[in-house]
């Protein structure tokens, strides 16, 4: 029917069948060897890229939140350090005051003790001197008046004299 229709070329309908069969076969071969694997790979790549973009976005927000957390922790630790320092200052102040008052009290008692000791020494020295003076005056008196006096009477005499001396000295 279509033979010798186009510029004298003869049409062989067997060729038509041959081309249809070979084209379908070719499509099948390409699908198995190339089309299937390559389009799958392209799809995988597209998926991977979109996944990567998503995960990059996620890690970016993670990093931002981490920075925020760090900053909060830093501020927290700074205020903590401040309270620690002020606590230490306060404690030091307290301790210093304690030590100073303690020292003052100590000094006070030591002073008192020293005064007491001095008083004691003075008393001792006075009584010693009194005894010495008594003995000495007895000796002197015995030597002067060449008379034997009873030591006790003499002592009473001396004491009264010394008493008068002490009063005179105090006033």
């Amino acid at each position: 029917m279509l033979s010798h229709l186009v510029v004298g070329q003869t049409l062989y309908f067997g060729d038509s069948l041959f081309y249809i069969i070979s084209f379908v076969l070719l499509m099948w071969i390409i699908k198995i060897f190339a089309w299937g694997p390559v389009t799958k790979m392209m799809q995988d790549r597209a998926d991977k890229i979109s996944n990567d973009i998503d995960s990059a976005e996620k890690s970016r927000t993670d990093a931002a939140s981490l920075v925020e957390k760090r900053q909060a922790a830093l501020a927290n630790s700074r205020s903590e350090a401040q309270t620690i320092v002020s606590d230490a200052k306060f404690n030091g102040q307290q301790q210093r005051e304690q030590i100073v008052t303690q020292a003052q009290a100590d000094v006070q008692t030591m002073k008192q003790n020293a005064q007491k000791d001095i008083e004691q020494e003075r008393q001792d020295a006075l009584s010693d001197a009194r005894n010495d003076v008594a003995d000495l005056s007895i000796e002197i008196a015995s030597k002067i008046i060449q008379r034997e006096l009873k030591a006790d009477d003499q002592k009473a005499l001396i004491d009264s004299y010394i008493e008068g001396l002490g009063k005179q000295h105090e006033s």
Partner: peptide, 10 residues
């Protein structure tokens, strides 16, 4: 050859 091209066209 027209038979080939007409086959694809068909």
């Amino acid at each position: 050859d027209p038979i080939a091209t007409l086959t694809f066209s068909l």
